[in-house]
Amino acid sequence: MTNAITINNLTYGYPDQDPLFHDFDLEVQEGQWLSIVGHNGSGKSTLAKLILGLLEANSGTISIFGQQLTIETLAEARAQVGMVFQNPDNQFVGATVADDVAFGLENRQVPSEEMPKMIEAVLQQVGMADFADREPHTLSGGQKQRVALASVLALKPKVIILDEATAMLDPAGKSAVLQTLKDLKNQYQDQLTLIVITHDMAEAALADRVVVINDGQLAFDQRPQDLFVQGQALKELGLDQPFESQLSQALPKAPNQYLTKQELAAWLSTLKD
């Protein structure tokens, strides 16, 4: 397996503050669905900005598919890594949905006549094809985030980073975005690496691997099912244990492994005769 992203000995701090990251290492394999969780201010969003070269590390290296990130390789790195930000309004560049998706294509100098087909295709993928001519202020937050995702997809990235992309959405918007992510991952399988930054455990549960960042350190690096059973440790990190793990730990006996809600309900129903 190749590494999509390799971070070595990263040190970074905002001016006049203690370093947020000190000698930080992280490897993300190609095709992985990784969740980065941590309480607000833990540095998880800063990490995303460092990977995309929106911030510059004080020391250490970040490599994208083996290519070390420098001023010279920045454009190439960004061609491979797309990002959806937290605020749905502040990343909508175009005056309509189609124009917004077109923005990245225009930057890449895609010929005009090829654009409509590409735009239609990615809007189809995120379920927003019927909204192509809509203006952003007529869309819900969840719809705007799906457009943002389409705008990123149009550039055919190998890695997509979502930086708390659902934090400002209502439950309906949140689940629509997460469903879209699942569909995309199903479609692209190992061709797409997803890095989802969140503090929502239901969102983290979708990943194959969860990394907990606390005070700029890796506090955990596990499969979600192994992380969720550690209730006390999560609480100390300012995070929630998912409902189903809380419940199974409150029962007198329970399998000592993580069960999804459905699995837990199915198991409990066998106990009742």
């Binding site: 900005k49 960004r78 797309g82 930000f85 309004d89 502040n90 990343q91 923005f103 930057n107 550039l155």
Partner: peptide, 14 residues
């Protein structure tokens, strides 16, 4: 908003 937008534009290759 302007700062966020600048980031979003840059990331999309502007």
């Amino acid at each position: 908003r302007a700062l966020d937008l600048a980031n979003a534009m840059e990331v999309r290759g502007f």
